[in-house]
Simulated assay, not measured.
Amino acid sequence: MISQKKVWLLLKFTVALKLLWMISLLRCLNIRWDPSNILGYRWLDYTDADCGPENVCNCSAVLQGEREALEQAKLLTSTKDFQKSVQIPNAYYINANLDCGKFKSSRKYLTFPLSREEEDFPLAYSMVVHHKDFPLKTNLEIVRALQSLKGSNSLESEKLPENKQWRVSHAHQIVDGQIQPTENIKEPPPFNLSIMSGNAYIVVNRGYIRSVLEDNRILALIEWAKDTFSPDEFLWATIQRLPGVPGSKRPSPKYDMTDINAIARLVKWRLHEGEVYPECQGNHVRDICVYGAGDLQWLLQQHHLFANKFDTDTYPIAVYCLEKYLRHKALAELF
């Protein structure tokens, strides 16, 4: 059972016509942290014998931004032989999962807390599983980041720009699988709420979630939002500014927060490259940077918990070197 201590929720909700709630509680049920087992955790570290694509390059040098290593990673990524070698067919996962225990052991998944601190501060996630939503922090670092919030939430919440007002001013409908605006003008939001701008990646406490499920103002807002365009890009941001919601901020513009200041997710937008952050070292998809190996050094200097986007089909070294770094760091934190 989850303890009654304050539990933080890192959430990614996708909301279209209907809200789908998927909360999976990540808590060790059978294996508890035991300080006497620390030395035995060494087998969980990644080694050259694990045969990951990062073994063909120097991940340490890549993470430090060394030019020669980055050029080598870029060259490898562009070759067809390398791209073919890192692609894993679906049949592999189907066959590997026939023996779940062996699969988890061979992949060295961490299925138990590595410290008492992590065990005493269980996290809950709600997410839409995708291959693009990779962490920048170890679980222990995430726990400490959430503890440092001291009851506050962390999510983008700004005044809705004029050029996005159409998203909430007109009713929308699904036509041939696409969201289309109609000529029907919507009634003002319930309780005269101010609609804020945000995104679907949020870090909020348990009280916030309880308000989402029980507060009449929020329930009315959810109902009102069902025929708007992309409700997840304003719903959570609006709730964050409601008086009485645990961890929320007042609706004053003094409390506006951008995605670069919120800790949930880091994105490089093409429009702001060279000004807010360095230029993308990968490529762009819908004006969002798909990170390459050259982005890793900068990414690890940021306070965000997760980053978007990664793609193992185009820039596998970025993902594998980051994964290797986080595993080393998680185990090093034990000593």
Rank of each mutant, 00 (worst) to 15 (best):
P253H: 13
R116S: 15
Q180G: 04
K104H: 05
R241E: 13
A91N: 04
K137L: 06
Q180E: 03
D287E: 02
Q173I: 03
A49W: 09
L110V: 11
P188W: 04
I31S: 12
A200F: 00
H303W: 00
N308I: 00
N261E: 13
M196H: 14
Q180K: 11
Y201R: 07
A171D: 02
Y109A: 05
D48K: 15
N30V: 07
V175W: 00
R167G: 04
N97D: 03
E68M: 08
F121E: 03
C51N: 15
G282V: 09
R241T: 13
P243K: 13
V204D: 02
E119L: 08
K329N: 11
V267N: 06
R217T: 09
I23N: 02
N283Y: 06
N192A: 07
F121T: 06
S24M: 07
I209D: 02
K186W: 14
Y93A: 02
S3H: 10
I94W: 00
E118S: 15
Q4K: 01
H172D: 00
S248L: 14
I218P: 07
E156H: 03
T258E: 09
D232C: 00
A171K: 01
P246Y: 14
N97Q: 06
T312L: 12
D99H: 04
K80W: 02
S230L: 03
L219I: 15
G52F: 11
A49G: 05
D227I: 09
K150M: 01
I195N: 06
E333Y: 08
F134C: 10
Q178E: 14
V285W: 12
L305T: 10
Y277N: 09
V290A: 11
C51R: 15
N199W: 08
L63K: 10
C280K: 06
K164E: 14
E187L: 05
L26D: 13
K150C: 01
